[in-house]
């Protein structure tokens, strides 16, 4: 057993404290703890802990079927320290709506969070999500976007980016991965004229926390799309999850933006845009693009054009030094001081 001295409240006679007790004395609220069965280096597990830390203890969670639900609650264990309810794959929005209505009826003040993967949000859960937004339930809906149906074995979803290989959009002679484009869910959701819809990334925890807190304050439906790498499905080393997520942002492929009532109100400028190949090369799901054929070269150009389009559309190109741009937003300081 390792010994830790000088910790806040020593519990042993010799002034040391056990790790179990130390865990209960952490300076940040932990709504989502270890022991869960996520893959090594899972971006979604990281996203879950970051969101619950920022949301605080006064929440209840509705969680759609998918990796997060499965790996966090292998019976009889639960990694959640807040009330948590498993919905079905398709109805996190509906269940969250009901939870909120029940709380309201009982006069309980707690925010309801809905958690779902991209399959459960972009595809099968979309209608219940749309209904929830239309009725403006006081729910923060968080979509962990790992860009495929990972829990059932990496099937493509409408969130899977163009040209990524999945088991149902394999790369081969006829096709270089997924043929279609990634669905622009944020704009679709924001078109409900909702108060707040934003994207975030596990690579920018301060930005993510700020957005969670912002959404928590708003009475009504809010939506957060968190880009969360999946080492298994994207085929990269688990150690690189944050690095890959960062490249998704700095290449312009994943714009970090905020929409209020459908209008753009915030964006994270990219200080030094990186070429998309830096992002693509880091992942096995794009490896078929790195063969020297005309088709592969064209796809690389295509993906670069998609990134350029994003940068133009949201004016992501930074103009000089900005503390909230892609290079400034993750700056760390001695003593752990971050901007959020």
């Amino acid at each position: 057993m390792s010994t830790i001295t000088n910790a806040g409240a020593p519990t042993r006679a010799d002034g040391t404290i056990s790790l179990t007790e130390l865990r209960e004395q952490q300076p940040r609220f932990q709504g989502f703890v270890g022991g869960h069965r996520a893959c090594v280096g899972c971006g979604q597990a990281l996203a879950a802990r970051l969101v619950t830390e920022a949301a605080g203890p006064d929440v209840a969670v509705a969680n759609a079927t998918g990796c997060l639900e499965v790996f966090s609650t292998a019976w009889p264990d639960s990694a959640w320290r807040v009330p948590w309810l498993h919905s079905l794959f398709e109805n996190a929005g509906a269940i969250a709506s009901g939870m909120e209505a029940a709380y309201k009826a009982r006069g309980v003040s707690a925010k309801v969070l809905a958690f779902a993967g991209d399959g459960g949000t972009f595809d099968i859960g979309f209608q219940s999500l749309s209904g929830m937004i239309e009725r403006n339930h006081n729910v923060l809906y968080v979509c962990y976007d790992n860009e495929a149906y990972m829990n059932t074995g990496i099937q493509r979803s409408s969130s899977t980016p163009h040209a990524a290989a999945t088991t149902t959009s394999p790369a081969g002679r006829e096709r270089l991965g997924k043929r279609h484009m990634k669905k622009d869910i944020l704009q679709i959701v924001a078109a409900h004229h909702m108060p707040y819809a934003a994207t975030a990334s596990v690579a920018y925890p301060s930005d993510l926390r700020k957005k969670v807190r912002r959404a928590m304050e708003i009475e009504g439906t809010t939506f957060l799309l968190v880009h969360s790498p999946c080492p298994l499905g994207w085929r990269h080393d688990g150690a690189k999850s944050v690095e890959v997520a960062r490249l998704a942002v700095t290449t312009g492929l994943v714009p970090i933006i905020e929409l209020e009532r459908g209008s753009l109100t915030g964006s994270m400028p990219i200080r030094e845009p990186r070429p998309v190949v830096d992002y693509l090369r880091a992942q096995g799901r794009f490896e078929h693009l790195f063969v020297d054929t005309p088709a592969a070269r064209e796809e690389l150009e295509h993906i670069q054009a998609l990134a350029n389009y994003n940068m133009e559309r949201y004016q992501l190109r930074g103009s000089g030094h900005d503390a909230r741009d892609t290079a400034g937003a993750d700056t760390v300081r001695r003593g752990g001081v971050r901007w959020a």
């Binding site: 703890v33 022991g35 869960h36 292998a74 019976w75 009889p76 264990d77 639960s78 990694a79 959640w80």
Partner: peptide, 11 residues
Amino acid sequence: AEPGASLDYHT
């Protein structure tokens, strides 16, 4: 399940 019971499982 009890809150945080996953800590019983040592990954």
